[in-house]
Design a protein around this nucleic acid. Sequence first.
DNA 1: ATATTTGCTTGCATTTTGCAAGTGCAAACA
DNA 2: TGTTTGCACTTGCAAAATGCAAGCAAATAT
Lengths: 175, 175
Amino acid sequence: MSRNQKRSDCPISCSLDIWGDKWSLLIVRDLMDAKQCTYGDFLKSPEKIATNILASRLQSLEEFEIIEKSEHPDSKRKMYYQLTIKGIDLVPIMIEITAWADKYATIPKERKALLRAYKKDKEGFIKASIKELKKCNRSIYKKLGICISVAVYYFFISSCESGFIFLLSGYELTK
Amino acid sequence: MSRNQKRSDCPISCSLDIWGDKWSLLIVRDLMDAKQCTYGDFLKSPEKIATNILASRLQSLEEFEIIEKSEHPDSKRKMYYQLTIKGIDLVPIMIEITAWADKYATIPKERKALLRAYKKDKEGFIKASIKELKKCNRSIYKKLGICISVAVYYFFISSCESGFIFLLSGYELTK
DNA sequence: ATATTTGCTTGCATTTTGCAAGTGCAAACA
DNA sequence: TGTTTGCACTTGCAAAATGCAAGCAAATAT
């Protein structure tokens, strides 16, 4: 993506200038699954991103401060990518995209039920998730530390991978 | 966009395969403003889409049944583009994108205040909008006819253009 | 009859993406 | 102490998408 030119001041257009390509949101999606945080993990995703495209998207997402790169806690030769607060704030968009696809594309049944629950009572769904979230112990949550209890307002089921994943949004925190 | 190949079954990926390029959502945005419904209108938008790209995006959006094309009520040499229900259902995504850009990019003050109101009480904001909507008389609303009172759940301020615009979602209708 | 508006199409240059192979470096192994 | 392996990228080149300018046919306005 062209990192330095805005087509207009329209918020839709500005957003698309940042992550409006075929790949960026898939990287964000992978990062929303706390298990997929390395370069190699992204390559394993079913869409099979090319290595050069991945490198270029990671760089631009980092420049736009949607993700950040650090040393992997388990190995010095691995890089560890994480969403920033700005990146985590893409969650509402991701959920609405998922809800749209749920309606107009074929997706797995488990998620259909959960999306129905989400749509029925968004706030309640979120609150109920906080309990689950507190059981979690992943680094991304540790990083946000004590903020978790106020910051969390989304609980989300990963799009592609098998297991459940839990997500935070720093929304309430940063406004 | 490649009209015929899905990269995976992930709902994010499927959605991006349909409208995940730099231009499609800008056309959708223009159509959300009931005043921008013709080929020429799209060309006037500040992002300056090229004519061939516009033609190709209109075709693919039509193939995906996000928009539909008909004769312009005022002139036989004009085409009239409108969102389908499927297209109108992109509104929640558009709102969340706008909310994100509102936080992380500079956008006009008027919309900031309105987005704050929306975030504070989504349902209330929507209900309050129905009154306004009923004052409206645009063709897109006429088309949905008697469905308006149940179908409407979103009220939205246009991203780019000066005036207020009012939007419907057929969400409740079609589920 | 002629000019103009409208919604495209066409041709070609530029940019982005896709694919395969290769590079460099740190850790693990022999 | 080499040597191998895993990981995060680069590089080179082909293919596809985008951008730009010009053209074109049908409907309307003069």
